[in-house]
Design a protein around this nucleic acid. Structure first.
Lengths: 106, 106
DNA sequence: AACACTTGTGAAAAACCTGTAAACAACGGT
DNA sequence: ACCGTTGTTTACAGGTTTTTCACAAGTGTT
């Protein structure tokens, strides 16, 4: 009955899209659906700069409307929750004028 | 697996699918068939978030119809009976937008 | 520094989801 | 047929998430 699960680590952070879960040191983060979708998208493209359009399309399924800030708002919330669990690591980098990048390392 | 020999504990709770029984401190809970099926499904996948669809398919044998709330109703009834027998333990956690998770621990 | 532009984030409103009581149906036993 | 039990569906209150907005803070250019 138990379903096999994909799992991968980025340092102490584990993301398991199939299980709708993200863990830090084995303890689950309590993320909302959107927050998790965003994390999964970023985490699936490490080291790569993703534009707001790409992120919005991946998470919301549609292109962002002009002046849409929802990606920024959710990046902010995700950073807050990741920061609470991993105070000393910076995971999401801003690329001004473009978008965001997820890097487990520098 | 031999009939009548499967048994496992989650704290003071024992679930014995083969015997159609769930016990707390050795005393059987009086669960209906549906309630027991739901408990067995959850209990068979500890720590794992099960979607409403997975739960419905496992307990009812079919995919839920749109706007079907039966899983929620039975989770509520199961919680009531488990809560009456184990007032201080939280066993079934809600994952908003996704489903439920059975965790004997946190 | 001043300016224009971009990003960060708290907070309110709107939308959506969950908990649960209650009504109703189906069934078996008496 | 009546009663008690279980299963199904509905309704509504309450809770959570998502969306949107406004302004603060940051960045880059001149």
């Amino acid at each position: 009955m138990a379903v096999g699960s994909a799992s991968d680590k980025a340092g102490r952070l584990e993301v398991r899209p199939e299980e709708h879960a993200a863990l830090v040191d084995g303890r689950p983060l309590s993320l909302t659906v959107r927050e998790l979708q965003l994390l999964v998208t970023l985490w699936s493209n490490p080291q790569r700069i993703l534009t707001r359009e790409e992120l919005h399309t991946s998470v919301w399924g549609t292109a962002p409307r002009r002046d849409d800030r929802s990606v920024d708002v959710y990046v902010s919330r995700l950073r807050a929750k990741l920061g609470a669990a991993l105070p000393d690591q910076k995971l999401i980098y801003t690329h001004n004028g473009i978008g965001y990048r997820f890097s487990p390392d520098g």
